[in-house]
Design a protein around this nucleic acid. Structure first.
Length: 269
DNA sequence: ATGACAACCTGTGGGC
DNA sequence: TGCCCACAGGTTGTCA
């Protein structure tokens, strides 16, 4: 269920339970994810978890011998469980920690990945990524410059990880609505002033979702549940054919890059 | 170089 | 109730 806010929520949820712990054992029940799980993951047995960080939608778990890099794909989740908890269908990986907790990776569709990055290496997937959306490097000037000459639709443009990371389908739809920009407009034809609004809304909507994600942390870490989909006030996503919350006209639904796009013809131009 | 599209895989929900 | 189809939070790889 991961867009960036959920990956961040996951990171914050598991960090206190993982940091400083020794990985006592690694169980791989299903090695076939989007790519086969890296061989080196098994060698983590006996290693101490030094640090957890996030880059884009990747979770980085550092040890002295290298870094495990987890991507949750479309349907992946990480949760902590206690001893005796039976495996569920699609629980593919388990790490037993020295505090007795078990970190389990669950992913029905297996679009996720568990990659390896050696010390002093940079994983191929992390190279060429654009700036973090909540960083200062991501601002209107940057987007404006990057977009000049582009005929690509603004929605697919902001969902391109080489432009900016972490803007998934839900938040691309929502931020374009809030900025009043029609998702089909060519990125290169949008003014600097409108990019100011767009960047502002992307940051707000992601930051707000992370805050709300935080409210589900306790359940999540307690281990009996899914990360839980943060209750988010959605204006357009999943609301095609329904009334616009701002002007009551019917929301349009189209497809862009095989993804559902929903927008209001009246509020977004 | 750009951009459109298929692919990876399973589950779910709607229509008949 | 059951079957079939379309679609789902992401990313990569290929092809025109």
């Amino acid at each position: 269920m991961p867009e960036l806010p959920e990956v961040e929520t996951t990171l914050r949820g598991i960090t206190p339970w993982l940091q400083g712990q020794v990985i006592e054992s690694v169980v791989i029940r299903q090695p076939s994810l989007r790519w086969p799980i890296a061989q080196e993951i098994e060698t983590l047995t006996g290693q101490t978890i030094r640090r957890l960080t996030r880059r884009a939608k990747y979770l980085l778990i550092e040890t002295d011998i290298g870094t495990a890099i987890w991507h949750l794909g479309m349907s992946g989740s990480l949760r902590l469980v206690g001893e005796g908890e039976p495996f569920k269908k699609h629980d593919h990986v388990e790490w037993l920690l020295s505090n007795g907790k078990r970190l389990r990776y669950h992913d029905p569709r297996r679009f996720g990945a568990l990659l390896w990055q050696g010390v002093d290496e940079v994983c191929a997937h992390l190279q060429h990524l654009g700036p973090e959306p909540l960083s200062e490097a991501f601002d209107a000037d940057y987007l404006y410059q990057r977009s000049r000459g582009k005929s690509q639709a603004i929605k697919t443009f902001i969902m391109d990880g080489k432009v900016v990371v972490g803007v998934g389908n839900i938040y691309a739809n929502e931020s374009l609505f809030l900025a009043g920009i029609r998702p089909t407009v060519a990125a290169g034809k949008i003014s600097r002033a409108r990019y100011v609004r767009l960047v502002d809304h992307i940051k707000q909507v992601l930051a707000g979702a992370i805050e709300q994600g935080g409210t589900t942390l306790r359940d999540f870490v307690g281990g009996d549940g899914q990360p839980g989909y943060f209750a988010q006030q959605l204006y357009v996503y999943g609301r095609g054919g329904q009334a616009c919350k701002q002007c009551a006209s019917t929301l349009q639904e189209i497809r862009q890059g095989q993804r559902a796009t929903v927008f209001c013809r009246r509020c977004q131009r």
